[in-house]
Amino acid sequence: MYKQDRQLILEDGTIYKGYGFGAETEMKGEVVFNTAMTGYQETLSDPSYNGQIVTFTYPLIGNYGINRDDYETINPTIKGMVVREICQKPSNFRQEFTLDEVLKELDIPGIAGIDTRSLTRKIREAGTIKGVITSIEKNSDEVLAELRSTDLPTDQINQVSTKKSFMSSGRGYRVVLLDCGAKSGIVRELNARDCDIIVMPHNSTAKEILRQKPDGIMLSNGPGDPTDVPETIETIKDLIPQVPIFGICMGHQLIALASGAKTYKLKFGHRGANQPVKNILTGRVDITSQNHGYAVDIESLKDTDLELTHIAVNDGTCEGVRHKKYPVFSVQYHPEASPGPHDPNYLFDEFINNMKNFKESNK
């Protein structure tokens, strides 16, 4: 039986006591939950979770270990991991490390042995909430007071976006990937279609992007509030009439804002690999991978050049839009999966077709 040595303290005063794994360090962050049954390595390394403490609803985490191939970024930036049970002796032919070993190396704390069902219900009822993982020996009243007085950072995209442009060469269409915290899965899907990719910082100007003579622009996923990067919104506004664009997750929200629509914070967000999305143009329903805390306001689309294309089956929120005049479209979910189902993978092919048609029409 493990000895309780760590605690998760929430800003409402709730305390969960459990046993620690990963790094022996104190971390604060926004506490969220993820409903995926697998994919904890991809979740751990997804830049969209920057600054968050991730709770897994699936009761056993770590049972197939960690391998070198399934990372979504080289430097994960989550603030902590909360699980019901951590597997200390995983068994899988691809395993190279345990989850505990990797979190220690990354200086990320974890807490296990708590009632994750209770914590998930609390987040669903009260909304996402600030929390801190700390030693059980710390005075909880003092920790709580410090937590309540701490403002979480709002520069998450700047933290995870590349600082310098770089290439992933191919012989096909040239795509500028505007990096707001891009997952490696997006690059893999474009590479699989032989795209010539130039990854650029989120704050690149339209002039700098167009200087690369792109056939298309990919707007990546990313963490936080999309209104925190007004310079990126202005850049996208300039780019929309000039080149085909495909936006994913944060990229979807930025296209909406650049077109005059509005976004808002969801109560507890959509995070998991089992989210049904309906294409209202075709009636097709895809099961999708999602990770976002903000959404596009459907009502605000009415006075823009965007039309609604997809909705979430569970709550009716906006999951996709397309431009009425230009070859620009976006989805709130992750067609590259990593982790999750590959139902919407065809959207990358639609992007390729948009670039092809646009290039042929401008010969």
Rank of each mutant, 00 (worst) to 15 (best):
Q95F: 06
E96Q: 14
E96Y: 05
E96T: 05
E96N: 09
F97Y: 15
F97T: 05
F97A: 12
T98Y: 01
D100L: 00
D100N: 11
D100H: 05
E101D: 14
E101T: 13
V102A: 11
L103K: 02
L103A: 01
L103T: 05
K104I: 15
E105V: 01
E105F: 10
E105S: 12
L106S: 01
D107L: 13
D107G: 06
D107A: 11
D107Q: 13
D107T: 06
I108R: 03
I108N: 04
P109N: 01
P109D: 05
P109E: 04
G110T: 06
G110V: 10
G110N: 02
G110P: 04
G110A: 09
I111S: 02
I111G: 00
I111M: 02
A112K: 03
I114V: 08
I114H: 05
D115V: 09
D115L: 10
D115Y: 07
R117Y: 08
R117G: 05
S118I: 11
L119P: 03
L119H: 00
L119Q: 02
T120N: 08
T120P: 07
R121S: 14
R121V: 10
I123D: 06
I123W: 11
R124N: 06
E125D: 08
E125R: 07
E125Q: 06
A126C: 12
A126P: 01
A126D: 07
G127M: 10
G127R: 06
T128D: 02
T128H: 03
T128L: 06
I129E: 00
K130E: 01
K130G: 04
K130F: 05
G131V: 05
G131K: 04
G131M: 04
V132P: 04
I133D: 02
I133T: 01
I133L: 08
T134F: 00
T134C: 08
S135M: 07
I136A: 12
I136S: 13
I136Q: 12
E137T: 15
E137A: 11
N139F: 03
N139I: 10
N139R: 03
S140T: 15
S140E: 15
D141F: 05
E142D: 13
V143W: 06
V143D: 01
L144M: 13
L144P: 13
L144K: 09
L144E: 04
A145C: 07
A145W: 07
E146M: 12
E146Y: 11
E146H: 12
E146F: 10
L147I: 14
R148V: 07
R148H: 03
R148I: 09
S149W: 08
S149H: 14
S149R: 15
T150R: 08
D151Q: 09
D151T: 11
D151C: 07
D151G: 02
L152V: 06
L152M: 14
T154I: 03
T154A: 00
T154W: 00
D155H: 01
D155F: 03
D155A: 05
D155C: 02
Q156Y: 10
I157E: 10
I157W: 03
I157V: 15
I157Y: 07
N158V: 14
Q159H: 11
Q159P: 01
V160M: 04
V160K: 03
T162F: 02
T162H: 04
T162Q: 07
T162C: 15
K163I: 04
K164P: 00
S165E: 09
S165P: 01
M167D: 13
S168A: 15
S168N: 14
S168M: 14
S168C: 14
